[in-house]
Each structure stands twice: as structure tokens, then as C-alpha cells.
């Protein structure tokens, strides 16, 4: 099985391992992420179930991209919990970007709990084809 065909499984929600703790009293999880590199952009896909577009922070500072998603932690009312298979909390992960990213053109959208970030490469960082001229 290649790395691209990873089977669905319940990923144990692991601590995000962030050096700085958040001020909110909620568990912080490291969400599952796919990162693809295209010629003109880097794509980041991140699973954040229960997070809507109003509860996401994306920051890029000193080439460190930080994604933070706040899950809706409200439990249903007037009903008793019988089994807990997953916890609610905050998703957070940081990445250091190796390529020059055009900061002004970063785009992000969330759909069905999947955050998709497009980080376009700056002109000078895009691959260039060098034409080789034959010697005389």
C-alpha cells in the first residue's frame, strides 16, 4: 500500500505538542494533514471536523504557518452521554514553509470539515525551464 492510499482509521487525537499553551481550558489536538507541492503552489489539506469558517485562525509568521481550528464544543442538552469515542477541543498545527510563499495570495476555505489552504509560490521561487542553446 502506497502512502497515498492510507486506510481510513480513527487516528488517536494526539497532543499538538505546541511549545506555547493556549489560554483556553480545552484539549489541543494535532489534526491530520496532507501537504502537496505543485509547480505554482503548495496545498495543505487538514481534517477539522466540527469547525466552521468562523472559528479558524490561519497565521503565517516568519515562514511558520499555524492553523488553529476551534471545534464546536457544545454537548447536546438534556441527554446523558453513554459512550465517548472522541473528544472535543482545539485543532492546532504549525509548519515551517521551505519555499518562498507569496503571502498576499494565500487562500483558504473549509468545506465539510476539511480545511484547504493554497499557498501560491512567489514568482522568483517558481521552477523555471532553462533553454540550452547548442554551441557553435
Amino acid at each position: 500500500m502506497s502512502a497515498k492510499e492510507k486506510q481510513v482509521a480513527v487516528e488517536k487525537k494526539t497532543d499538538s505538542g505546541q511549545p506555547a499553551e493556549l489560554t483556553r481550558d480545552l484539549p489541543v489536538f494535532a489534526p491530520d494533514v496532507d501537504i502537496y507541492e505543485k509547480d505554482d503552489a503548495i496545498m495543505v489539506l487538514c481534517d477539522m471536523p466540527g469547525v466552521d469558517d468562523k472559528h479558524i485562525d490561519i497565521t503565517l509568521e516568519n515562514d511558520v504557518l499555524t492553523l488553529t481550528g476551534y471545534q464546536d464544543t457544545a454537548e447536546p442538552e438534556d441527554i446523558t452521554l453513554l459512550h465517548r469515542g472522541y473528544d472535543h477541543g482545539i485543532f492546532q498545527r504549525s509548519f515551517t514553509l521551505s519555499t518562498e510563499v507569496d503571502r498576499a495570495k494565500i487562500a483558504a476555505r473549509i468545506n465539510q470539515g476539511v480545511l484547504q489552504i493554497t499557498l501560491p509560490k512567489a514568482e522568483e521561487a517558481k521552477p523555471r525551464k532553462i533553454t540550452v542553446s547548442a554551441g557553435a
Binding site: 492510499e5 492510507k6 487516528e11 491530520d32 494533514v33 496532507d34 502537496y36 507541492e37 481534517d47
Partner: peptide, 12 residues
């Protein structure tokens, strides 16, 4: 032609 740097999300 897309390089996958990290593939953590499962499918199937």
C-alpha cells in the same frame, strides 16, 4: 506530477 510531502489523511 504533484509531490506529496505528507499524507496523513486516510481514505477507503
Amino acid at each position: 506530477g504533484v509531490v506529496c510531502h505528507r499524507c496523513e489523511r486516510g481514505q477507503g
